[in-house]
Simulated scan of single mutants.
Amino acid sequence: MTGSVNKPGFPLTYCVGAAVLLLAITLFVSGCVGNDSPEERRTISVTGSTTVLPVGQAAADAYMDTHLYDEILVSGGGSGAGIKAVGEGTADIGMASRDIKAEEKQKYPNLVEHVIAVDGIALIVHPSNPVTTMTMDEIKAIYKGDITNWKDLGGEDRPIVPVGRDSASGTREFFYEAVMHKEEFVRTQQELNSNGAVKQTVAQTPDAIGYVGLGYLDNTVAAVTIDLNGDSVVPNIENIKNKSYPIARGLNMYTQGQPSGLVKEYLDFLMSVEGQRIVAEQGFVPVQ
C-alpha cells in the first residue's frame, strides 16, 4: 500500500508568503534608490558666447558626472544672443566674451555679471605664411582695408583675406573696441559665426588672417606675435597673466539677479579649484 510521504521543510504557504514579502522589500528599496521622480530632477540652460562655450560645456559635464539627477544644457549662439536669452528668461545663464553694453544693461537691469576666466584674442594666419609678427597698427590697417597685400608686410605678393566674426559675437565687439578703436571693418571681411569656423577657414586658406579666443589655438594655424615698440609679445597664458599681451578680456556669465539653486551650484563649481582647473585646461586664464 502506497501512502503519502511527509517531506521535511517549510509549508508551501509559508514559502509563498516569504517570497512575496521579499519581492515587496526589493521593490521598495529599488524605488527609493532609483527614484526618477520629476521633483528630484533639475535642469538649467546655458547659452551664448562660443568663446566661453568650451569651458561651460566641460564644467557642465564634470558637474553632471557627480550629480546624476541634474542636467545642464549648454549651447552657443554668440554673446549678444546669450545676454538676450537670460535677460528675456529663455535661458538661466548667458555666456559672454565681453562686458554688457549700456543699452543691454538698461533693457535688462537685473542682470548680474560673474567673471569666470580671462582670455586673450589671438590673431592667426595659415602655418605656411611667413608673416608671423605684426604691430597693432598693421593689424588694424588690415581689418580697415588699408593694407590688402601680404607683400606690404614682408610676405608674398598675394591678397590678404581678412576673416572675422558676425555682429552677435562678443569677440568681434571687443576686437572692434580694443583693436579697431571703433573704426569700421573692411567690407570684404568674411564674417563667421564661431571661433571654430574662423580657425577652420584660416587653416584652409593660405592667404587668410583671423582672430580667435586663446583656447582655440592649435597646430592647424599659426599665432601672430604682437610687436609692441620692438618687444615681441606672444599670445599665451603667461603674457595674459602679466598683462603684457594687449588684446585680453574677461569671460563672463550673466544671471537674472543673484543666482540660486542649480544655477548657483554650477557657478560655484566653476569658481572652485576643480572648475578653475577646467578653465586652464581649456586654454584660458583662471581668476581664482
Rank of each mutant, 00 (worst) to 15 (best):
K144T: 11
E238T: 13
K101I: 15
V202C: 05
L27K: 08
T2N: 15
P235Q: 04
G76Y: 12
A60S: 10
G82H: 05
P38T: 08
Y266F: 15
V287W: 00
I124W: 08
R249W: 05
E156A: 15
H67G: 02
D218L: 14
P259Y: 06
I93L: 12
Y143N: 04
P127W: 08
G215K: 00
V5E: 06
Y108K: 09
E156T: 13
Q189I: 09
G31C: 07
Q189M: 15
E103C: 11
E104Q: 12
R172I: 02
Y254H: 00
W150H: 14
R42P: 07
D36W: 06
I209D: 10
G213F: 07
A222D: 10
K140I: 05
S79I: 11
Q57E: 15
A96Q: 14
G215L: 00
V202M: 01
N239F: 03
T205F: 12
L251Y: 08
C15S: 03
A96E: 09
V163F: 10
D157C: 04
I44E: 02
L267K: 15
A141E: 13
C32L: 14
Y216D: 06
P286H: 00
K243Y: 09
D36A: 10
G230P: 10
T135V: 05
G34V: 04
L214F: 05
G9M: 13
Y14Q: 14
Q258T: 09
V224I: 12
A223M: 02
I124D: 04
P127C: 10
M95C: 00
G48L: 05
N252K: 09
N242L: 00
V118E: 13
